[in-house]
């Protein structure tokens, strides 16, 4: 039963993608005559001069994707860093910024969840800092840190920290009273209580926060790299925009989507490990 649904769903996905590609191809391929346009200008305009679009078609993109797959480490035909290297930089920055955020957010979230005093004291600060666009921090980071690499990591850090902190404190606050009562009647020491009772109880909520965080971090890294430049998939997209290499931009967009999905899947699998049912 579930298998047939899975197969049907897969075929339907395939069908939708194919339909989209056909419409796309149809849209970009011009058929009309050029209207007595200057030959040189028509060549410059490409298929747009024939009433189509100057957007590359799915077949152009497919051939570009293949060329990048064939040469992942070097930009096809050059010795510049390839797509795999660029996305590697982006993933690295996200993981470092996200990891540092987890190291800070989870203990602080724990403290907020355990103590009504800390909760009240930190809540207004978090509520003000949380809605700030992470990119707004970038000039300040560049000015104070004076290092492009560290600044983009800082931007990832600052956008990942809030969902993890809020979810950790919420998870810790909502540990069931009966489990706390069990621990109290067993006279469990504070450190053991934190690691054997509260942390496992709050783990699913913390994992949800981590999934939200990594999603936001992955959204933000592309924009941050566009601004900071140098390396990374965001820089790659912006560079190709300056070169007007639209097929490369579309290739990069597809890659960003695939990697984002993989990051989310990895955390979803981790969440399954710590999940429990009552």
């Amino acid at each position: 039963m579930t298998n047939t649904i899975r197969l049907k769903a897969f075929l339907l996905t395939l069908l939708l993608v194919t339909l989209f590609s056909i419409v796309w191809q149809f849209y970009v391929s011009g058929t009309a005559e050029d209207h007595g346009m200057d030959a040189e200008y028509a060549a410059l305009m490409g298929s747009a001069s024939k009433g189509g679009s100057n957007l590359p078609g799915p077949l152009d993109v497919a051939s570009t994707v293949l060329s990048h797959l064939a040469s992942p480490l070097h930009y096809p035909g050059t010795d510049q860093p390839g797509l795999l290297v660029q996305i590697g930089y982006s993933i690295g920055r996200v993981l470092i910024g996200f990891g540092l955020a987890a190291l800070v957010a989870i203990p602080i979230g724990f403290a907020i969840g355990m103590s009504p005093l800390w909760n009240r004291a930190l809540n207004p600060i978090i509520q003000i800092l949380k809605p700030i666009s992470p990119l707004a921090w970038l000039p300040l980071a560049l000015y104070t840190i004076k290092d492009a690499e560290m600044s983009s990591i800082f931007v990832i850090f600052i956008c990942s920290v809030w969902p993890m902190m809020i979810n950790t404190s919420f998870g810790v606050m909502s540990v069931r009273r009966e489990w706390m009562n069990v621990a109290r009647t067993l006279e469990v020491k504070p450190l053991r209580l934190a690691f054997r009772v509260i942390l496992p109880a709050a783990a699913p909520t913390i994992m949800t926060g981590m999934r939200i965080s990594i999603g936001i971090a992955w959204l933000v890294i592309v924009a941050a790299e566009m601004l900071v430049g140098g390396t990374g998939i965001g820089y790659f997209v912006w560079n190709e925009w300056n070169n007007l290499e639209i097929t490369n931009i579309i290739t990069a967009i597809l890659l960003v989507g695939v990697v984002g999905m993989l990051l989310d899947t990895a955390l979803a699998m981790a969440a399954r490990v710590v999940a429990y049912s009552d």
């Binding site: 009966e178 489990w179 009562n181 069990v182 109290r184 009647t185 067993l186 006279e187 054997r196 009772v197 496992p200 109880a201 783990a203 710590v274 429990y276 049912s277 009552d278």
Partner: peptide
């Protein structure tokens, strides 16, 4: 305060759901 000399059986069993039966007992 609470004491290990007074054990409680709770109405809602209050087992820790992420631990196995053996670990729940071992924890105590």
């Amino acid at each position: 305060g609470t004491s290990l000399d007074r054990a409680v059986v709770f109405q809602s069993h209050a087992l820790l759901p992420w631990m196995t039966v053996g670990t729940n007992i071992a924890f105590a």
